[in-house]
Each structure stands twice: as C-alpha cells, then as structure tokens.
C-alpha cells in the first residue's frame, strides 16, 4: 500500500523544550525469513535506515533490521532550538526513499 508516512510534531514549542515526535510508515518489513504458501522464500525487503533532520542538521538516525515489525512506528524526542522544518527520511534497502516534513514554530 502506498500511503504517505504519518508524523506528529507539535506546531509550536518553547526554545529549549524537549518535544515528542511520533512517526509511522506503511511497509511490509519483509524479513527474508518467511516462506510463501508454495514453500518458496519471500525475498527480504526492509527499510534499514531512518533519519531525522532539523533545519538540515541530523538529530537522530536509526538502523533497522529484519526484526522490526511491519508498518514501523518510531517515537523519539528532539530539543527545540529555532523555528524551521523537521525532515524524516526512510531508506529502503532497495534504494527507495520516503520522506515527510513538519514545521515547528519556536518561541
């Protein structure tokens, strides 16, 4: 299914505040360990890297393996420094990337 990733970032935050980020993306995270009904192995296809940047600067990156469940959810934190844009990128092993952005106003 080709749904857009979902992200939740507060629209405003006070400078220095540590805020919560929630993300979820549609992906089968096929581990390569499963077999199809006919017994043939289902080829591995996973997102292996997730990157969060804040005005272009990396805040958090994550490496994923076959043990991450399908439709991966990730919740983490970030410190508000200045108004701008958070960008989220999911990298598929096959080379595809999926992105989402969210703006934040820092007061």
């Amino acid at each position: 299914m080709s749904a857009k990733p979902r992200v939740r970032v507060p629209s405003t935050a006070k400078k220095g505040e540590v805020f919560e980020i929630k993300t979820v993306i549609s992906h089968s995270m096929e581990s390569g360990q499963r077999k199809a009904a006919d017994g043939s192995p289902i080829p591995r296809k996973i997102i292996d890297k997730f990157v969060c940047t804040y005005n272009g600067k990396e805040v958090m990156t994550s490496q994923w393996y076959g043990a991450v469940s399908a439709n991966p959810y990730l919740e983490f934190f970030c410190t508000a420094t200045e108004s701008g844009t958070l960008e989220f990128t999911w990298h598929d092993e096959g080379g595809e990337t999926y992105t989402a952005t969210a703006d934040i106003k820092v007061t």
Binding site: Q33, V59, M60, A67, Y73, L74, E75, F76, T79
Partner: peptide, 28 residues
C-alpha cells in the same frame, strides 16, 4: 534479541539535540 534467528534488532544514533535518549518502537 538474542533468541532471534538474527539477533540485531535496531540501532539509534543520538545527538545532544535529541534531548532524551529514548526510542519506542515494535519488534518481532
């Protein structure tokens, strides 16, 4: 996860700007 066929699950690289070294996610 040491009882999985492949024990690696995930790795997270944080920065001081992360504010908290925290991750919530779902695994097999």
């Amino acid at each position: 996860a040491d009882g999985n066929p492949s024990p690696e699950v995930a790795a997270f690289t944080f920065t001081p700007q992360s504010g908290k070294a925290f991750a919530k996610f779902r695994i097999r």
